[in-house]
């Protein structure tokens, strides 16, 4: 089944590449719309997280090699180095996921502090410069 899977992946590589890139860029555009146009602060952080997701998908799509296997050396696959997918974008995305979680946590804690002070979470009603 794995062999058949890879044959199909090689055959329809163009469609897969176009689909993955299109989905990633669409996700990034939707997230950018939410960041720029929404008034609610929680909605803005949701948009930021969607933008992050699109960026991660774009990176993994760039690192994908036609018909490659996962970049893991296992017994019996010692010569698999030439047909692996690129492991460098995967390591970058692995770090970026954790950093994105930390950024989300900091932003949400700031939102809670702002709400306790101003009793609103909408950016067009927070008018004071100091808090």
């Amino acid at each position: 089944m794995q062999q058949e899977f890879h044959e199909i992946f090689v055959k329809y590589h163009e469609i897969i590449t176009l689909g993955v890139y299109g989905t990633a860029i669409g996700l990034m555009l939707i997230g950018l719309y939410a960041v720029l146009m929404k008034k609610n602060l929680v909605k803005i952080v949701i948009g930021l997280s969607i933008l992050d997701a699109g960026l991660h998908l774009l990176f993994i799509g760039i690192g994908y090699v036609q018909g490659g296997t996962a970049p893991i050396f296992s017994p019996g696959y010692e010569d698999a180095g030439s047909k692996m997918v690129d492991p460098v974008p995967q390591a970058l995305v692995l770090t970026a996921i954790v950093i994105g979680f930390a950024v989300t946590a900091v932003a949400l804690s700031l939102i809670i502090r702002l709400y306790k002070h101003h009793h609103t979470a909408k950016i067009d009603q927070i008018k004071s410069l100091k808090w």
Partner: peptide
């Protein structure tokens, strides 16, 4: 998607952090 694009470690991390932890803090 990550699993189908041959990145199982990224898929595991995304499943743990993206589904559970992010939803909880939101």
């Amino acid at each position: 998607f990550f699993y189908l694009l041959q990145a199982p470690d990224v898929a595991l991390t995304e499943a743990a952090i993206g589904i559970a932890l992010t939803t909880i803090i939101f």
